[in-house]
Amino acid sequence: MQAATRSTFTGTDPDQLSEILSTAKSPISVTALDNKPVSFRCNFLSAGAIGVAECSYEGTIAAKRETQGEKLTIFLPTQGNAIFSYPKKSIESVPGFATLLEGDPTTRTLLVGPRNHLALFIDKAKIVGSLTHMLERTIRGKIDVHPYVDLTSSAGLTLLHLAKQLYRGLGDDGALRQSPLALASLCDAVTFLILENCEHRYSDQLARTALAPAPRHVKRAIDFMHEHVSSTISLRDIATAANVSIRTLQQGFRQFRNTTPMAHLHELRLVAAHNELCDPYSTSTVSQVAAKWGFSHLGRFAAEYRKRFGHLPSQASKA
């Protein structure tokens, strides 16, 4: 977990606000509607894969996200409305409901002040990684999470409570700044709360995984993969270790893991490579790590690694 950082911005210039809200990969353009005065105050706190902000705005602001963002944003408004317009739908952010956005490019965002909200920002790579772990297979692409959570519901109240804890804990004298394990646990709690309580593309699969434990031969196969993750093993080797036919093994993985045995092995090797690249005591190069875990084509390894973890192997953090 990276060290916590804090940035506070106040102003009246839409261009300054545009710069504040943009990232290098996902710029956001901001204008004052009808050229009327606007003002803003934003306090951003971040640590690793998660960030939290308290923002207030006066006036009516129009904004547009130009490209796909890399974070899931959760708005927890206490005052004022915001409307996020997309080519085929609009999502409104109003008090009483959390609004979840996957960072899609917008046709326009309209923010009507006075507007106050707390916001959470979670790297989509962390969301995908957690979901991959839960389903025990590689997940790629959008999660398609339902955009609304009722803040009076049990899940909504818990989400709001966690967001406030993160905001307080990452402040100047916050306890989470000196407690990286506690911070990591809170970040995981937010991520799993969303995945387990909000409707999304993989909700049914998560429910089936929870209700249908894998049969013994699938568990034996997975144990064998863990034991030989850095060895050259074939589908036949895995089936033999599980004491079933290849066909039965494949059916078991399709039914109970929604993947194939070799795809599951591939995922284990990607995670093993990631863990070694992030190990602060490891001196191995990217090419050495790739070869160790069975990836013979370095370019393909880099592309698959980036899809899985959100960055290139050379950018793996050893913090």
Results as ranks from 00 to 15, higher is better:
112 V>L: 13
13 D>I: 10
125 A>H: 15
36 K>A: 12
79 Q>D: 05
28 I>N: 01
91 I>C: 06
130 S>W: 09
122 I>T: 03
48 G>E: 11
18 S>L: 08
83 I>G: 03
127 I>F: 15
25 K>P: 01
81 N>L: 12
17 L>M: 08
132 T>Q: 03
120 L>M: 13
88 K>Y: 11
117 H>N: 08
28 I>Y: 04
65 R>M: 04
67 T>N: 05
70 E>Y: 00
75 F>W: 00
59 G>M: 06
63 A>I: 11
67 T>M: 03
25 K>L: 05
31 T>Y: 11
38 V>M: 13
66 E>L: 08
63 A>W: 03
60 T>R: 13
100 L>Q: 04
52 V>A: 05
102 E>N: 09
17 L>N: 10
45 L>S: 04
47 A>P: 09
69 G>N: 00
55 C>N: 07
64 K>L: 10
117 H>M: 06
122 I>V: 14
101 L>R: 00
68 Q>W: 07
35 N>T: 09
20 I>T: 13
75 F>E: 01
29 S>A: 11
97 F>D: 02
130 S>L: 05
55 C>V: 11
75 F>P: 04
36 K>C: 06
41 R>Q: 10
99 T>G: 01
122 I>N: 01
118 L>V: 01
36 K>P: 07
115 R>T: 15
32 A>P: 03
42 C>A: 10
27 P>F: 12
70 E>K: 12
54 E>H: 13
14 P>F: 03
81 N>K: 11
30 V>H: 09
125 A>Y: 15
29 S>N: 10
37 P>D: 10
110 L>E: 14
82 A>I: 08
122 I>S: 01
51 G>P: 10
27 P>D: 04
47 A>T: 07
69 G>Q: 00
120 L>N: 12
61 I>E: 09
92 E>G: 09
77 P>F: 01
131 L>G: 04
24 A>H: 01
89 K>F: 03
58 E>Q: 10
75 F>S: 00
101 L>N: 00
18 S>Y: 10
108 R>C: 14
128 V>C: 09
55 C>L: 08
110 L>S: 12
97 F>H: 05
104 D>P: 00
67 T>S: 07
71 K>V: 07
66 E>M: 04
124 K>F: 15
54 E>T: 10
55 C>E: 05
60 T>A: 13
14 P>S: 05
